[in-house]
Amino acid sequence: MIVYLVRRLGQSILAIIAMAVLVFAGVYFIGNPVDVLINPEATQAEILATTQRLGLDKPLYEQFGIFIWNALHGDLGTSFVYGRPALEIILERLPATMELAVVALILSVGIGIPLGIWAGLRPNSLSGKTIMGGSILGFSLPNFWQGMLLILIFAVLLGWLPAGGRGETRAFLGMQVSFLTWDGLSHLLLPAINLALFKMSLIIRLTRANTREVCLQDYVKFARAKGLAGRRIVLVHVLKNIMIPVVTIIGLELGSMIAFAIVTETVFAWPGMGKLLIDSINLLDRPVIVAYLMLTVLIIVSINLMVDVIYSLLDPRIRLSEMKG
């Protein structure tokens, strides 16, 4: 188990290094931020001074070297626009995005898995077919349109929930969160549903397919032959087997939800990291873009690492073969 973890950790670090090179080079080629940042009336001497101040006159490899050196010391650069450390600006926005993603994940798993199992156990029933039909809708509707429709129905027509913003927040573990106040929760609900619908549909379909497959296995028939109650067969024998692929997807999707909640955050004016990224790209605020992408890579890599560990806890076969290896 230890050997396995160390090896996986090594792979993760390699992935982060590769990503750093790509991100840095990619952002470098987008354009010269000085052109955007500086007053169009500025003289050549002023432009030169700014370029030198931001360190943009040095060759790419040298800039990269400085970036990596600073990154290893926990400094991902200073925002050109805000004049403050990029990481600090992003971390200010992180709790909002994290909260949105986690609530969306809880919604999609909490609703998706039971519905998927239900549909998998009764593939030919009306309820099973309705669930499947609904899931097709869930992942084929464009996210921004679906968000606007939610606003139209629940905020404008029915007036039940607010259309945007974060509402009242409260401190929780050193972060400002919305879900602890009634006002915050009502603001959180619509964007979380919007972000969750796609993943929920995915989880429903995956769970249903796996449930159907597992139900045909001999061990389920054997469990019935042992005289076990239906509930125990579904909740223990079936559920534990379908959790393996479902956990993989949840891990991958949590990463992408945190990183790419951009559309939802824009539609619902949710003050998260995604909104910040869009603004930074418009202003070519290079350090913020790089820092954002690096943080995203770090989050996705760590989640994948966690998934692998959970995986081995769920499936004893993986545990053993990896321990030998």
Binding site: Y219, F222, R224, A225, K226, G227, K240, P316
Partner: peptide, 29 residues
């Protein structure tokens, strides 16, 4: 089932649940 009439299946590789320990599968019976 399992109490007065028991059954043994053809393929032993498939009859035991791969993710549950033997004691779990016996105790539940």
């Amino acid at each position: 089932r399992g109490k007065r009439i028991a059954m043994i299946f053809q393929d032993p590789m498939m009859t035991l649940n791969p993710v549950l320990r033997i004691d779990t599968q016996m105790v539940e019976t």
